[in-house]
Design a binder for these strands. Sequence first.
DNA 1: TAGTGGTCTAGACCACCCT
DNA 2: GGGTGGTCTAGACCACTAC
Lengths: 243, 243
Amino acid sequence: MGVQRPKPIADQVYDILRQRIRDRKYPPGGRMPAESDLAQTLGVSRATVRTVLARLSNEGFVIRRQGDGTYVNERIQDVDTRYGGLWDFSRLIRASGYTPTIAVDSIIERPPRPIEQEALQISEHINVISMLRLFRADDKPAIWAHNLIPAHLISLAAADVRGDMPIHQLFRSYCECEISYAITDVEATVMTEDLKRAFAHPIGFPLIKLREVFFSKENDPLVFGQSYFDHSVLKLRMVQAWG
Amino acid sequence: MGVQRPKPIADQVYDILRQRIRDRKYPPGGRMPAESDLAQTLGVSRATVRTVLARLSNEGFVIRRQGDGTYVNERIQDVDTRYGGLWDFSRLIRASGYTPTIAVDSIIERPPRPIEQEALQISEHINVISMLRLFRADDKPAIWAHNLIPAHLISLAAADVRGDMPIHQLFRSYCECEISYAITDVEATVMTEDLKRAFAHPIGFPLIKLREVFFSKENDPLVFGQSYFDHSVLKLRMVQAWG
DNA sequence: TAGTGGTCTAGACCACCCT
DNA sequence: GGGTGGTCTAGACCACTAC
């Protein structure tokens, strides 16, 4: 019994406040309790409360005004601004109000192409696991994702890899590595013949292309991803906050 | 004389460490001094040092490993990952290693179009200042930016607005408001006849389109921007870190 | 003037990695 | 075991806003 610290206190406080905002216990546009009140009510120090409020402010969920108070931002409700919004496509779809489904097109092990060798910094003799998947939002094709993982990082044969889990969970499950950060290049492209297997749009229709490389804490490349994003189905929305 | 606190200590520490990383005083991939050492050397508390390191870690400049140390991330050197990378186009160009120049196409005051009314949440009777600008990277057209500002927010006539400063500086100069956060929609589009005044690409060439709305601390819309981004000239690169 | 958020400190204890 | 980052506390003082 007792306290049970499955998570850091700050994370627990974050979940509580985030939930209260979602439940409109702190109504949109309204003022939240003072930091010191929250600290006392929740039984934590003010520093911990401030850590959490800083995070909520960075994500745009609250606006803080010195000498005044902390307010719930009514403009940010349906936006998933948490870090990682650009790599967990299922959550991105769900946060946009749709039901995600994943269709695995193929999962095979093969030698890497030159561009993949460079991105993953491996030699031609190291095989990669190539995974082609289509993410749908309410059955409408939204994202066509091609992910490549050095085969030696995964303790499974390609045939046994489950394609229906997000990349970071896949890594936690199948190898000891954990994703630490990602570098993403955002590009624009258009429908080609190749993409007809994913989208029904005509040739020349504009699509967003995301080129992502994920790295471990040891700074080794873990995954190389090239994803085609149909923003007519799903908004690619981001929040930037300063303060 | 004396201490002179033009900036918070944490910001000063940030600048110092950022500079040492840039100068390779802390070499790429190398380990930085321990938090307690930094605190003692710089004459600040460990909490302050940790605030700064957390920020550097979020921006991807350093990687922290519990029980081990804090390391300079050699993969993030040319990336401007600071908050606001998506709105200060001049800095974005400079951070990519090019020299930015701004060509002002037009600055006029006029009634708002419906789509602009909605984005800025103003009535049709409130004029907007419309600003069309072309950002070049080493003389190559990189970004075609259309910004709209409610005229009543600016204490100047449209003709007197200087187009060569970034939006946030413009607001600090010409009105009391300050930009607090922004919501950005990333889209893909293609060259049209209209865009020929900006780019030399053929019709159908893919471009990134950024739809941005900037808000004040009071949560009022300040600027509506629609920008066309040529990623064949300038990479739109982002870093996401979790830890 | 009272109350709010903003900044900073000093110090405790824990979890983890290395050797 | 010794050192590192991770977490959390208690409390001080400042800057600002609303009344």
